[in-house]
Design a protein around this nucleic acid. Structure first.
Lengths: 221, 221
DNA sequence: CTGTCATTCAATGATTTTATTGAATGATGT
DNA sequence: ACATCATTCAATAAAATCATTGAATGACAG
């Protein structure tokens, strides 16, 4: 029986939060919930995991104060309680990006092979959209697009891109975005567009960051 | 053998960082290293833990990119590689402070009993110091004070405070600070000073945050 | 070279976390 | 009431993390 002083008790609580972030699939759950509220089943489908497993992860995140759950009929909808969880995720990501050699290796090996250009910043995109210089495509699945997207963006899920190239004029630069800074879909989209002769770039991060930065968001009717 | 796509590999790396933050004593190590570089033995002494145990925790933090180690003769000095680790700690703390009921309980039960006043912000302190309105005391141990302190602050380790009350005039407000936002020493100092009739408040956070905010820092000769 | 000291390594058991399975719960619709 | 469906709970085994111990390493002093 160890005597724990108040500082140690506080640090145990902080550790609960960090521990909740310390599992790759829980981070992925956060990424998906950052697009909008979701039921357990919907999340399990997106991640390709058993429902009971996802349910347990969600409860771990809820106990850490990252999520709230609301019952809606038969379904339980989970959502991020606020931006602080996403901010914690982002700061953890920053540490890894700056100091882990393995991250560098993965980025060089996969991501830079698809898009080695500087991404577009939010501000830059907002300006170029206002001036009518770019076509913005949202490459996420339609359900995520419906929950909120960059005003004026066209929803072209990655799988549909080859069939819908004709919709995108070559006179304007195409800017693609999806769920976040390392969402593979926007990298794949940019690579595909370039190979077809389009001028294409990525947005530096995704929808949740756009929303968190206070930019206007359009929601499906 | 699971096939892991590049996103999952990245998330595993992010999880390594979060996992490293997911242990109360590793968080405490970060707090101490935020005061300045330290040897393994010195940290073990401060935390009251076996050296081998501390060594292992430090290596976990190093593998997560949070610390760097430099050999200096017989000693190995660990240090925070940059502010990003402290920022991650801070954002995890924010989640816990906002959403964990247990944190609220601990703060109410212990900390607010010692100091229920609004703490002084850095900017406010800088202004009031310039105008000569406050006496600033640094209640950390002398070795930490020596590695950097608020210019003009007096080092009064908490244990010495009762014997050194006479040094502090009652005409000026006394502001106490120590290692960080929930460092118990500054709470105890404020409580002790108030009980002796002094006007006393805490700085909202500690030395590492002062330094990270770009404020001037004085180092012992 | 030898002894000492700070640190790391390696091995161990104890504890915690994780994934899986199937049963229990709670709400809905017939 | 009954069947159905989404979710949670409970139990289990596998895996990871943790603290502890004592031996190995690497640097210095004599």
């Amino acid at each position: 029986m160890s005597i724990r002083n108040p500082k140690q008790k506080l640090y145990e609580q902080f550790a609960i939060v960090a521990k909740a972030l310390g599992h790759p699939q829980r981070l992925e759950l956060i990424e998906h919930l950052a697009q909008g509220p979701r039921s357990v089943e919907a999340l399990a489908m997106k991640l390709g995991l058993p429902i009971a497993n996802v349910s347990q992860h969600l409860q771990t995140l809820r106990r850490a104060g990252l999520l709230s759950a609301e019952r809606n009929g038969k379904f339980v909808n989970y959502r991020l309680v606020d931006d602080s969880g996403l901010a914690a995720f982002a700061s953890v990501r920053t540490v890894a990006e700056r100091h882990l050699a393995e991250v560098d290796r993965i980025v060089r090996g996969y991501f830079e092979a698809r898009d080695d250009m500087e991404p577009v910043t939010r501000q830059e995109l907002a300006t170029r959209m206002r001036d009518g210089l770019v076509t913005v495509i949202d490459v996420r699945p339609p359900d995520e697009f419906a929950l909120g997207h960059v005003p004026g963006a066209i929803n072209v899920p990655l799988g549909d891109l080859p069939a819908r190239l004709a919709e995108l004029g070559k006179d304007k630069e195409v800017v693609a975005y999806c769920r976040g800074p390392w969402c593979v879909m926007s990298f794949e989209a940019v690579a595909a567009l370039r190979s077809h002769g389009y001028a294409a770039r990525r947005l530096a991060d995704g929808m949740p960051e756009w929303r968190a930065a206070g930019m206007a968001v359009e929601v499906a009717a």
